[in-house]
Amino acid sequence: ELSQDQQALINYIVDAHNKHRIPQEMAKKLLQEQFNAKENFLLLTEMATTHVQVLVEFTKNIPGFSTLDHEDQIALLKGSAVEAMFLRSAQVFSKKQPNGHTEVLEDRIRRSGMSEEFITPMFNFYRSIGELQMMQEEHALLTAITILSPDRPYVKDQQAVERLQEPLLEVLRKICKIQHPHDPQHFARLLGRLTELRTLNHHHAEMLESWRMS
């Protein structure tokens, strides 16, 4: 069972995660307008920038984050921004969209100039997240847990980060047991996705460079 404090923590993080997302007007642009390759690139770049801004706003709401050393806060956000972006996109792709929307989005990404060797693992990741049928609590908590990874480069006080991450892991573990009683491995599967995310993050920098060149 969840304690009252744990339930309050979940509600708080889910609220923050729902509140801080890419504005709908911007998301709509992805579906409505036709762009050439250059405009496509600029739109996706603009969305990535906005994503980072809303990610920071969400992160400010994670209990205890503001007590961390300021430079450690930046190191955590820098280290996790790409992973959090993939998680958010995965959440979008695993939701049931109105007819045709998923195809339009996928097509736009495929025509954005990114190389196939990167696109394939990205959509594989989206699919693997989709298969887990995660609830919004799991998405919000997993994002917070990703951000509070103590082993990011340049983090000085790793223990302080661990102290914030641990209660979130415990809450997520409990939620997995409650919401997926027939899949005792669900929590382990979620953590496995974090490993997959690290691999995507690792390839992201070189992908971005080749994208910029093309």
Partner: peptide, 21 residues
């Protein structure tokens, strides 16, 4: 434009609450 800023700049500005810049 914001898209010309580096990741760290965007994070620093957003942390300081200057999202509109």
């Amino acid at each position: 434009p914001a898209s010309n800023l580096g990741l760290e700049d965007i994070i620093r500005k957003a942390l300081m609450g200057n999202m509109e810049e």
